[in-house]
């Protein structure tokens, strides 16, 4: 049995109904443990004080903001190539979640930036890139909402997602070129030596896992809603045709 079997809406509904409670439960557990651990049981940073603790929201949401777009890109490609409806609906479902993640990353960044850099907003490359990413999400969601016919909307947004991805990467480099910036380097990399120390790192990893699971759970819920909406649409059509 191939993976593509789950592209059938009925099968997807069956599987996701089983998976969803597990994913949702795990995500709550990870987020609860990670955030409480991070907020209350880690020492303050010797330079940044307690403000550093916003990292437990900022870093995971920023990661998910980008990963959500990548997921939408993959789902759009699957839709364009193999015409699996669940794929298109999953892309649609992920967009507002990714948009909110981008907003959280921007907001927590601003709250962190105020005491650290003395300003809520700076036209730093990373901040600017995220603002541009937010605009991409906004356009994508708006295009979905504007088109009535669901398949036309799926096709056009998939094309937009493809083109948008190329331009998003391009913008990232353009923005880097344009301003060297205040933002510190990445807080995490696979090479652990360069990272923040273990006391901060472990709860952060738990938080990231929690955000990934939260994203998954939200996308599953939203995809299920979209599928139900399409089912309603199909039933109405059938009723009209007699």
């Amino acid at each position: 049995m191939s993976l593509w079997e789950y592209a059938n809406p009925a099968r997807f509904m069956g599987l996701s109904a089983k998976v969803l409670p597990v994913v949702a439960g795990l995500s709550l557990l990870c987020l609860g443990v990670g955030l409480v651990w991070g907020f209350f049981f880690t020492p303050d940073d010797y330079r940044q004080g307690a403000t550093v603790k916003i990292i437990y929201l900022h870093v995971p949401s920023a990661m998910m903001a980008i990963n959500a777009w990548v997921m939408m890109l993959v789902a759009s490609l699957i839709w364009l190539i193999r015409r699996h409806h669940v794929s298109a609906l999953a892309a649609r479902a992920a967009a507002p979640v990714g948009m909110v993640m981008t907003l959280i990353a921007l907001a927590t960044g601003a709250i962190w930036g105020q005491p650290m850099w003395g300003t809520w907003w700076a036209w730093d490359p990373r901040l600017t890139s995220f603002l541009i990413l937010f605009l991409f999400y906004l356009g994508y969601v708006a295009l979905w909402e504007a088109i009535e016919d669901p398949d036309t909307a799926a096709d056009l947004t998939a094309v937009l997602c493809l083109v948008g991805s190329v331009f998003a990467v391009l913008s990232r480099y353009a923005v880097n070129f344009w301003n060297q910036g205040l933002h510190q380097g990445a807080s995490l990399s696979l090479d652990k030596e360069e990272n923040v120390s273990d006391v901060f790192w472990l709860p952060l990893v738990v938080c990231i896992a929690g955000f990934v699971l939260l994203f998954l759970a939200l996308v599953l819920v939203r995809t299920r809603t979209e599928i139900r909406a399409r089912r309603l649409h199909a039933l109405r059509l059938r009723a009209r045709m007699g």
Binding site: N8, H85, R230, R231, H233
Partner: peptide
């Protein structure tokens, strides 16, 4: 008929 797609959601 079977040719369509919306019935995939039925």
């Amino acid at each position: 008929a079977r040719s369509g797609f919306d019935e995939a959601f039925l």
